[in-house]
Design a protein around this nucleic acid. Sequence first.
DNA 1: TGTGACTACGGTGTATACTCGCCAAATTGA
DNA 2: TCAATTTGGCGAGTATACACCGTAGTCACA
Lengths: 75, 75
Amino acid sequence: MTLREIFAANLKAHRKAQGLSQEDLAHRADLDRTYISALERQLYSASLDVIEKLAAVLAVPPAALLRLPEETGPG
Amino acid sequence: MTLREIFAANLKAHRKAQGLSQEDLAHRADLDRTYISALERQLYSASLDVIEKLAAVLAVPPAALLRLPEETGPG
DNA sequence: TGTGACTACGGTGTATACTCGCCAAATTGA
DNA sequence: TCAATTTGGCGAGTATACACCGTAGTCACA
C-alpha cells in the first residue's frame, strides 16, 4: 500500500462523503478537474500545497488524507 | 501556519531526534542533501513520494509529519 | 590557528506536477 | 431510449519539484 494509493482512496472517500463531483472539488480547491481525476487514479504524487487545499475544502486535517481508514486520531 | 511550515518543523524535529544530519537523512532516503536543507527552509512543497521516503527513514507514519506537535494519535 | 562536521546558498539541468482544451466512455435518471 | 451529469483519457504547454555541482559560513575542539 503506497502513500499515493492511501491518499487516492481517502480523497475519493471524503469527496463522496461531501457529495461533491470531481469538478465541484476541483473548482472549490482551485485545481484542474482532470488533475483531481488523475490523483484518484494515482497518476501523480500530490504536493503539500495541493494536499493543504484539498483538506481545507474537504474539511478534514491534512494528515487525515494520509492515514489508512482503520486508523483513528486527529490530524 | 502553512502545511509547509508544519512539515518543515516536523522533519527537522524528527531528524534531530534520530541524531541524523541532513546529509545522513538524504542518503538514507535516497534524496539530495541540498534538497533536505531546502525542505527544512520551506523552499519546496514536498510530494507524497518524498514524504513516504522520509517517513520510512524517520520511522514515523507519514501523517505524523503533517500534524502539529500538540496533536496526538496514530499516523 | 586550523581542521572537521554541519548547514545555507547559488546556478544549472532534468523529471514531474499541474493546467487547459477537447472528445469519448460511463453513469444516472426521466 | 434520450438527455444530462460525471469521469476517463490524451496531447501540449507551463510551473515547480528534485538532483547535482560547487562555495562559503558557523561552530566545536585540538
